[in-house]
Design a protein around this nucleic acid. Structure first.
Lengths: 182, 182
DNA sequence: CCTAGGTGTCTAGGATATTAAACGCAACGC
DNA sequence: GCGTTGCGTTTAATATCCTAGACACCTAGG
């Protein structure tokens, strides 16, 4: 198992300053249930855990995304930009060495003529960004659009997408994606 | 309930091209269990759902984060930058109108002398960013650091933090945070 | 036709989770 | 001291889940 649902629930409950009975009442379960779950004496069904979390309220996704040992580390400085790119696309990743990151923040530079390819990228999650300088053509789900400095985008990463710089100047974008792509 | 664990599991399983028996074998449960779960005839315990997902493999967080109706929407254009700031700090949020976003991507401009305050900000999640122009002093967990163009930062948002522009020039940052702060 | 191997579904019974109520403990007012 | 109110824990009975194995269906090959 090594998935400490109990401690997690307890932490969440206490974070909201609720007693077992209070939470139980809000959630429509008994206080005994909360107690047993928090002691890891039982593994709740998804439906009952959902009921409990609805009392907080918190979604299941949020609950399981909680980083129990929330690394109190801070990363900063130019050094934190790790080089990943190749050829005409330069990618620099923020806090690459941080374990368990929940986002990829990237500084992307597309040289003139750069193209992520016909095949289209597709992966779970969401991504978005802002164009800092230059112009770029972004195709998402069959629709293409030119973006210039100050323009922004945001989409579900499972949609096939492609970045292309048809111009003669470099284009710089700062983007973020969750869960981390890199 | 209205939380269709069954369909979700089925979708995941089929996405990976597995039969109920194959997945069951990998996961160490019986095919009947998978069948019953997919039909929503039972609400699996967290421990057994975890076992099942380990067979894929997929984490519980990923499973519950799956957006069933994965909004195929794309947001872009300068219009997508919604103004939020006040006073010396200007905040522009990407895709503000998108429901259920998992990130806040912001273009932040700190005027000379801008300061998010002594009281320190603190909230759940993670955040990071890259300085586009100007200089800014970032204090996280008691440690201050000056950042200039091209520098980056990343930290756990629950650490008390503060942004301050002690210089005479504007500072522009592009940042992201998850879960969304705005 | 009919076996062989694949699919998903169903059922009986043992295993596990949940309830309702009791229990032990500590803090407070009287 | 004593009653009250809050806390988390425990217990016996009930409800729910999970397993093993049978079942029905389909497709392919002999």
């Amino acid at each position: 198992m090594t998935l400490d649902v109990g401690s997690r629930l307890k932490a969440v409950r206490q974070l909201y300053g609720l007693s077992q009975r209070e939470l139980a009442k809000r959630a429509g379960v008994t206080n005994g249930t909360i107690s047993l779950i928090e002691q890891n004496r039982v593994s709740p069904s998804v439906s009952s855990l959902k009921k409990v979390l609805d009392g907080v309220p918190m979604t299941l996704a949020e609950f399981f995304t909680l980083d129990p040992e929330a690394a109190p580390q801070v990363f900063y400085g130019g050094d934190e930009l790790t080089d990943l790119g190749s050829g005409k696309v330069s990618l620099r990743l923020v806090a690459a060495r941080r374990p368990g990151r929940r986002m990829s923040i990237l500084r992307e530079v597309y040289a003139a003529g750069a193209d992520t390819g016909e095949e289209m990228l597709s992966h779970e999650g969401e991504e978005g960004g802002i164009v800092v300088r230059g112009r770029i053509e972004l195709t998402v789900g069959g629709q293409a659009k030119m973006l210039g400095p100050g323009d922004a985008y945001y989409f579900t990463s499972s949609l096939p997408h492609r970045f292309r710089n048809p111009g003669r100047e470099e284009c710089e974008i700062i983007s973020a994606s969750t869960p981390p792509t890199f």
